[in-house]
Design a binder for these strands. Structure first.
Length: 479
RNA sequence: CGGGAUGUGGCGCAGCUUGGUUAGCGCGCCUGCUUUGGGAGCAGGAGGCCGCGGGUUCGAAUCCCGCCAUCCCGACCA
């Protein structure tokens, strides 16, 4: 009976059903009352906070400052940049009534903030001495989605958007690449997601951008997830909003601007990169509880176990470990084991009378098959090491997985075969029509032109035209 | 927007074909006792505008019409 099924639907059976079940059962999110909206529950929000804190620190360390811009934007602002409005028009939510009457000018709920921020930058920037202007905001944005997927594509989501203005193209491009590198570092070091840095092709570019860069990650079903993007906007928005400065020479010049963002979608990436058939697997850096201690009490021994477990919890916390004592009464140890595994806790410590007699706790890692005794006196040091090893293991495991599902394709047959299970590296002619044909036939799209791809010549895998990028592109199906 | 499906306690479902007394079951929840080393047992208990509106009928969860919502598959998509 379905209601009695205790495990989750296996990934191999139905990856998308597995994903859905995980996000709800692990209590990361719930559905909001409006289609496509999402409630981030405390456990999920804690993960977001940990990710957010890390990103925020890195953003500040590189000289950016946080600010906040309004949710509502005059519709006319969007129109000022032709490509921008064309790109976003289908997913805009528009406010037409307020204060009990129809508004003279409709307001859009921000899908992103280039326009308002551009307007304000134009007001704040006068001279080259005001540059570069390095801003960031943490905000929610709304993009109407026809096919929502929790955390990956919801109508409203949380993100960080950096917006900067520079004197010239070189400065703005340097910034664009700095943000991209920051995202790659966050993905690898915090989320344990190996990402490929690269540039988007014309067809996949941000509306209004000169160049769009991305970090792409592979999920366990072989599909790609764009996990962060960074755009060089040229002077497009500067011209649309009058972001100008007086140069040293006295000439009035347009700024070169950038924007870049990483969102709550990243949590979906973490789930699909590391999760397995027992549930979530969280990298220690993002785990609300890195170590959960399950006391196992037998009648009159319960008190001694409780004391020891509480003491252990405190000692782990003093060592900087996010430790949690699961002292729920009337919930069996077996239930707790499964519960915390579903929720992705990296390490579990079992503490019962037998362990107490040995002066140790029994350690089970989320990915390990067996349990190991850990002497209580050295537990804090030992667990600090174990957590670091676990974090490293996740990255290595995900990297191996990605590499095993990525192969070059020089023929159309190799191409179609490769994108069924993962990514392929192939030459392309650069024509958008050719990209569309590939997409129509295989559902695969160019994910990026890898920054570190070796220069190489060849023929387009689809139409045999000249390779347009001087190297192979990554193709794959994506979220 | 097209195709398919589903709406019944918090969750998962049965009942509907062939209308009929008090709408069932599992999980969860509450109380008590016994338990606790991989999803505990027993006993008792609470909880329902059967998606919404109309119609047929002595009588509708069940039949008819309309609407709404959600999910899946497409198309679309930072």
């Amino acid at each position: 009976m379905a209601g009695e099924r205790r495990g989750v639907i296996p990934q191999s059976e139905d990856f998308s059903a597995w994903y859905n079940e995980i996000v709800f059962r692990a209590e990361l999110v719930d559905r909001g009352p409006v289609r496509g909206t999402m409630v981030v529950r405390p456990y999920g929000y804690r993960i977001w906070e940990l990710l957010q804190a890390d990103i925020d620190r890195r953003i500040k360390e590189t000289g950016h400052v946080n600010a906040y811009f309004p949710l509502l934007i005059p519709e006319s602002y969007l129109r000022r940049e032709a490509e921008h409005v064309a790109g976003f028009a289908p997913e805009l939510a528009v406010v037409t009534h307020a204060g009990g009457r129809e508004l003279d000018e409709p307001l859009v709920v921000r899908p992103t903030s280039e326009t308002v921020i551009g307007e304000m930058m134009a007001r704040w920037i006068g001279s080259h001495r005001d540059l570069p202007m390095l801003l960031n905001q943490w905000a929610n944005v709304v993009r109407w989605e026809m096919r929502p997927r929790m955390l990956l594509r919801t109508t409203e989501f949380l993100w960080q958007e950096g917006h900067t203005a520079h004197v010239d193209e070189a400065g703005a491009l340097r910034e664009t690449m700095l943000a991209l590198g920051l995202y790659a570092d966050v993905a690898r070091e915090v989320a344990a997601m190996p990402v490929v840095e690269g540039e988007k092709t014309e067809g996949e570019r941000f509306p209004g951008a000169r160049q769009t860069f991305t970090v792409e990650a592979m999920m366990r079903d072989g599909r790609a997830l764009q996990s962060g993007t960074s755009h060089y906007l040229g002077t497009n928005f500067a011209r649309a909003f009058g972001i100008r400065y007086t140069a040293e020479s006295g000439a009035l010049e347009y700024c070169h601007t950038t924007s870049w963002g990483m969102s709550s979608r990243m949590l979906g990436g973490v789930i699909m990169t590391h999760g397995d058939d027992r549930g979530l697997v969280l990298p220690p850096a993002l785990a609300p509880y890195q170590v959960v201690i399950v006391p196992i009490g037998h009648g009159d021994q319960a008190a001694a176990v409780q004391t020891a477990a509480a003491d252990l919890t405190v000692r782990l916390r003093r060592a900087g470990i996010r430790a949690h004592l699961d002292d729920r009464p009337h919930v069996s140890p077996g239930f707790k084991f499964n519960d915390w595994e579903l929720r992705g806790v990296p390490i579990r410590l079992e503490l019962g009378p037998r362990d107490l007699a040995d002066g140790a706790a029994l350690m089970a890692t989320r990915l390990g098959a067996c349990k190991t005794a850990v002497p209580l006196p050295s537990a804090p040091e030992r667990l600090t090491d174990e957590l670091a090893a676990f974090q490293a293991l996740l990255l290595r495991r995900a990297t191996d997985f990605r590499d095993s599902r990525t192969r070059p394709a020089d023929t159309w047959a190799e191409f179609t075969d490769a994108v069924r299970t993962g990514w392929t590296l192939a030459f392309h002619c650069g024509s958008p029509e050719c990209e569309d044909e590939i997409k129509a036939e295989t559902a695969a799209t160019p994910r990026c032109i890898p920054s570190d791809g070796p220069p190489e010549g060849g023929r387009c895998v689809r139409c045999d035209g000249d390779s347009a990028y001087g190297r192979r592109l990554i193709f794959g199906r994506s979220y």
